[in-house]
Simulated scan of single mutants.
Amino acid sequence: MTVAVVTGADSGIGRATAVRLAESGMDVGITWNTDEEGARRTADEVRAAGRTAAVARLDLTALPDAVQAVDALADGLGGLDVLVNNAGTGTSTPFLDIDHATVRTVLDVDLGGPFLCSQHAARRMIAQGRGGRIVNVTSVHEHQPKVGAAPYCAAKGGLGLLTQVMALELAEHGITVNAVAPGEIATPMTGQEDRDVRREERPGIPLGRPGDAREIAAVIAFLAGPDASYATGASWVVDGGMLRMGPQAGSRLTSGDWRRP
């Protein structure tokens, strides 16, 4: 695998993944939506690892035309072997209060965008004739619900099943498709980027802390590399044990605060 495209690589998990893939020997296409400066900082880190970087804007609320950015990056880098669908968004709005426009935006960015990006990438991989890797970044909320996140959970759950369908249909072309489902990770989305996760206490998580973006990037890099050649159609949960706490956490709650986003 020599060329990867990582969507939403201007910060957080996307940036950590782009750098990790560069360190493993890949040239990397980097997309951004609102933070061009952040994307260029990621590109600088990729180049510091000795690899080629290219940057393009990808606004997944402007489907389907926006997905042409994936093709443009692949053209500029000379091919496409790995696609990481990392770009995403979410809400913290009660189900009864959320408006249709917000629902549509979340579904487009978190589900429609990865669907179309994967189509473009897979067609290119098939034409190249050397297989490929697609990794969809979902969430623990691919598997379990969260109050105030109805469209986000719907999109991530859908992306999890889409991953399985893609894995079945693309296997004959040597393309593997997996999901990585992070728990609470120290990123801009959770307001924790650049914090030392070892100093953050999370009593409800068995490992006792949030995750670092680089811990997610390591799993993505494994799935994008040669050692994962027989792994496809799975969701790789990386959450410090969070999902295992369902009944245990429920039995220990002391207030109804969980009902509010």
Rank of each mutant, 00 (worst) to 15 (best):
R20Q: 14
A66N: 06
D59V: 05
A39W: 00
P64G: 01
G29D: 00
V46C: 01
A66V: 06
G29M: 01
V55T: 05
G38D: 03
V28T: 10
D35L: 07
V28D: 03
R57F: 07
E36R: 15
D44Q: 15
A56Q: 15
D27E: 12
M26A: 11
A53L: 00
A39S: 02
A48N: 08
M26D: 05
A39L: 00
R51P: 10
T34C: 13
V46R: 00
A54F: 13
A49P: 06
D65I: 09
G25I: 09
L21G: 07
D65N: 13
E45Q: 15
A39N: 02
Q68S: 14
R20S: 13
A53F: 01
A18G: 07
D27I: 03
A49N: 03
M26C: 12
W32Q: 11
G38P: 02
E37F: 09
M26T: 07
L63I: 04
M26W: 07
D27T: 05
E23H: 08
A53W: 02
V55R: 02
M26S: 11
L63G: 02
A49R: 02
V67K: 09
V67H: 10
R51A: 03
I30Y: 01
R20M: 11
A48C: 07
Q68A: 14
G29A: 02
L58V: 05
D44I: 11
L60P: 03
R40S: 09
G25N: 04
A48L: 08
R47E: 12
A43P: 05
A48W: 11
T52D: 09
T61S: 14
R47C: 08
L60C: 08
T31A: 04
W32H: 15
A22H: 00
L63H: 06
A54G: 13
V55C: 06
A62H: 13
S24Y: 11
E23P: 11
T31C: 05
A49M: 06
L58F: 05
L60N: 08
T31M: 03
L63Y: 12
T61M: 13
L58H: 04
I30V: 10
A56M: 11
G38C: 03
A43H: 00
V55G: 07
W32L: 10
A54M: 13
T42E: 01
L63C: 03
S24E: 13
L21I: 07
G29E: 01
A18Y: 01
A54T: 10
D59N: 13
D35G: 10
V46A: 00
T52K: 15
V28F: 01
R40M: 11
Q68L: 12
A49V: 02
D35C: 08
D44F: 09
L63A: 03
